[in-house]
């Protein structure tokens, strides 16, 4: 038996844990790109705000688009719904109210990670300290993932955790690609050397470079990276992989309603798209950016359908 309210909270628990981990990746891709690009190439940290749709919330709190302000906003700011601290705090709140059905260790791990982050976040805003902090958060989240994998019954609780993780992960992969799309716009006159570095950084931030190479060989091209990150069925950070997993989860749960239809339509959209044409004007509405935007809207829609199928507890 799984209460609707509890199902909703564990779904969000999984989303927040995934989000915290993904935000570390998002900040890392930005740093990687910054370090790799030749001197003089124009780059803005503001991209991160646009990608995470948090510009207005940022500017209501800060005046200047400096690296320090943005990193503080993304890491530590509890008014930013996507910051690492907000995600960890919310994960902890959700587990606090569902810990009775989860392995006891899970609460200890999440609590410990939150306490670590809370103690260290303010000292982690400089470039040097930041990397260590982000690594700790990533390791903490993955440790929790491992614990769930090893100690949780394969029942509906597990299904809702997986649903939450996959939706969040698919969303974040589209946002990481979006960083790349918007940087392509800013790089000035086309330079394939810079492009290669950029796509390499995207793969690194997804921790997917080796996996890419096993499939496509050593050469990193824009089209292949986009194809890999969006459609691949064996690579767990690919949107296609997540959607396929969601599709099979929905097949085992009772009364999935329209959630199934939307999942299938996203999968079709991914498979039917010609990515080379999206890369002609990557940052335009017709280009990669616009395509990613549509996928993100579909994912929001999918969340809505999951919510009305199982979480809205009308008698």
């Amino acid at each position: 038996m799984l209460l609707s309210r509890v199902a909703e909270r564990i779904y969000w628990l999984a989303r927040y844990l995934e989000r915290a981990q993904n935000t570390t990746q998002l900040i890392n891709v930005q740093c990687h790109v910054l370090l790799d690009l030749p001197f003089g190439t124009e780059l803005g940290w503001g991209t991160l705000l646009r990608i995470t749709s948090t510009e207005s919330s940022f500017f209501s709190r800060y005046k200047n688009l400096t690296e320090r302000n943005i990193v503080k906003f993304m890491l530590a700011d509890l008014d930013n719904p996507g910051s690492i601290m907000t995600s960890l705090r919310n994960a902890r709140e959700n587990i606090r109210t569902t810990r009775d059905i989860l392995p006891f260790m899970l609460w200890e791990e999440v609590n410990e990670l939150y306490l670590y982050a809370n103690d260290h976040v303010s000292g982690s805003l400089t470039r040097r300290d930041r990397y260590e902090f982000l690594e700790e958060i990533r390791c903490g989240c993955q440790q929790i993932g491992g614990l769930l994998d090893r100690h949780l019954n394969r029942d509906e609780v597990f299904d809702f955790i997986k649903l939450g993780s996959y939706i969040e992960r698919a969303d974040m992969t589209t946002r990481i690609l979006d960083v790349a799309a918007s940087l392509l716009l800013k790089r000035g006159p086309s330079s394939s050397a810079i492009d290669d570095l950029l796509w390499m950084s995207v793969l690194k931030s997804l921790h997917g470079l080796t996996m890419y190479r096993r499939h496509y060989g050593p050469k990193v091209t824009a089209e292949n990276v986009v194809q890999f990150a969006l459609t691949h069925r064996q690579y767990p950070c690919a949107v296609g992989y997540s959607m396929q997993q969601i599709e099979s989860l929905l097949a085992t749960l009772k009364n999935p309603g329209e959630a199934k239809k939307i999942t299938q339509s996203i999968l079709r959209k991914l498979d039917d798209t010609e990515f080379s044409s999206l890369l002609e004007e990557p940052a335009a509405e017709k280009g990669l950016h616009g395509f990613l935007d549509h996928i993100q809207i579909d994912l929001i829609d999918l969340h809505g359908k999951i919510s009305s199928a199982w979480f809205e507890y009308e008698s």
């Binding site: 799984l2 209460l3 309210r5 199902a7 109210t97 810990r99 009775d100 009772k254 507890y313």
Partner: peptide
């Protein structure tokens, strides 16, 4: 929460329960 976990029972809030027309108490589940 501790007692629900330790006894393997469900931890519920008022909004999770309702009384049906048959006067039985029900819990809202997935």
């Amino acid at each position: 929460s501790f007692l629900a976990q330790e006894t393997g029972t469900e931890l519920v809030e008022g909004c999770d329960l309702f009384v049906g027309d048959d006067d039985f108490v029900y819990v809202r589940t997935i």
